[in-house]
Simulated assay, not measured.
Amino acid sequence: MTRFLLLCWVTSMCVPALAAEQSTLDPDAPYQAVRSNPVTYKVDFRVVVTAPYKTKVLKVWLPLPESDYGQEVTEGELTTFPVKVEPSIAKEEMFGNKFAYFEFTEPQGALIIRHQFKIKVWELRWNLNPDRVISVSQWPASFDRYRKGESQSVVVDDRFEALFLQIVPQRGNPLRDMWAVMTWVIKNFQYDHADASLQASSVHGLEKRRGHCSDYHGFCAAMGRVMGYPTRVTYGINTFPKNSPSHCKLEVFLPPYGWVSFDVSETQKLIAAIQNDPHMDSTRKDRLTKAALHRLLAGFRDNTWFLQTRGTDYQLAPPASKRVPVVRTIYAEADGVPLPEPDPANKTQRTFAWMTAHHYAPDRPVTDPFEDFTSLERVSLADDARD
């Protein structure tokens, strides 16, 4: 009888704790960040696609940004030139990403797809506290798509587990362990346009330790999955004149904060710019470097980037000839053969299957927080006040 009462008491204590843990575990929950500094952009986004000679059918999938807690989309219009084609709109099944699908029969010369819309974007800050992060003993099946090693992009194998043990010899707090991975990447990876996968390849990151933002964040996503935590690569658009407007970020699900955004590659480039500034003394360089790392590790998403797709390795809607690793600006096929991914920032690349032309008109002046030090000065002063 005593043992029965003891078992009942233990169960009554554990069940509420488990219920509290499970109540925070919803992969579709909205962001839990503090949002501020909204900017509304008028976006004119165009893609010029040139199919190979004598192509019978050109298929193009264009990702469409959607409204969520971090952004609000209005006034969308899709047109084509010189041939008028009405797109079909659909969502793919795995992550719910939304696409406009265009099909051109016997295309002649270059084709232009134009997307005009407004989007209001907030700055998001999570202000992470590692002591609040919950260690999860059992994830619901709804997270499997964010925790499994995939056939392409975010691959997880024994090599990642071995390297993780070198970076984090003894597992501890999940957030602190993830911090260790990201700071290791900042110290050991090199940003490189000429040697990049363009596919969020964790294996490319592991083997080369260089590449694009997607290689940085694909690698970090794999290391997060080694820890057992859901991760995903999110692709979107930077709202500044650039050769290639696409840019990705890492997201890790850290209850009770939910999905948290991190930008490892841009933080690394920002720190390098600080350290190489010839007009800055060492004291200010150290202070701003500390502020850049603090902003990264606290969870930060800027208002100069908007989200288009979440996740990697999925089948498009309607289906393409194969699953896509990621969609950066568009995905296109000519007679069932994928057109090669362009990287206009790669100086050695001279030919492109498509190119983007884009313009963003903000409703107020805005600066890139990964190039302008002003916002870092505010972070630095806040740190000094806390100290």
Rank of each mutant, 00 (worst) to 15 (best):
P30A: 02
K249A: 07
D44M: 02
G149I: 05
T312G: 09
A382Q: 14
P27Q: 05
W184A: 01
R3C: 12
G236I: 06
E92N: 07
A361W: 13
R125L: 10
F240S: 07
I119Q: 02
E377A: 11
E207W: 08
P344T: 06
V43Y: 04
D277G: 06
D286I: 00
F300T: 01
T234P: 03
A200T: 01
P338A: 02
M1Q: 09
D383P: 04
R176K: 15
A292C: 10
K59I: 07
P107F: 08
S88K: 14
R328C: 07
A292K: 09
S153I: 02
K208P: 13
L18R: 04
P27V: 07
C14A: 10
A332G: 03
R210N: 15
L288G: 13
E66N: 02
M280Q: 09
F81I: 00
I119D: 04
H279A: 04
T289L: 09
P87N: 06
P140W: 06
A292S: 09
L296Y: 11
T356G: 01
N37W: 14
D368E: 10
G299R: 06
K84L: 12
T234D: 12
Q268D: 14
P340G: 13
P169N: 05
K59D: 10
H358Q: 03
F95L: 06
A222Y: 04
R46G: 01
C14T: 07
F104L: 05
H212Q: 08
T312H: 02
T105Q: 14
S36L: 09
W184F: 13
D281N: 14
G205R: 02
R323F: 10
A345T: 06
D28C: 08
K242E: 13
F240A: 07
R176N: 12
Y191W: 10
D263Q: 08
M178Q: 05
H359K: 10
D195M: 09
W354C: 03
A345F: 08
T367G: 09
G336F: 14
H359Q: 12
I274V: 15
P52L: 10
K347S: 05
D277I: 03
T267L: 12
A320Q: 02
V83D: 08
P362Q: 02
K322W: 08
E103C: 11
Y41M: 12
Y229C: 01
V154Y: 01
P344M: 06
S282V: 07
R3T: 05
P325E: 07
V15C: 14
S23M: 07
A298M: 08
F104W: 12
E333P: 12
P318A: 04
V233K: 00
P16A: 07
K118T: 00
C8M: 12
V85M: 04
C248Q: 00
G211Y: 12
A33V: 04
K249N: 08
P169A: 01
T2Q: 14
F160W: 08
G218H: 03
D277N: 15
P325L: 14
V49A: 08
D195S: 12
R209A: 06
L165W: 07
A222L: 05
D68K: 09
M94H: 03
V337G: 03
A33F: 05
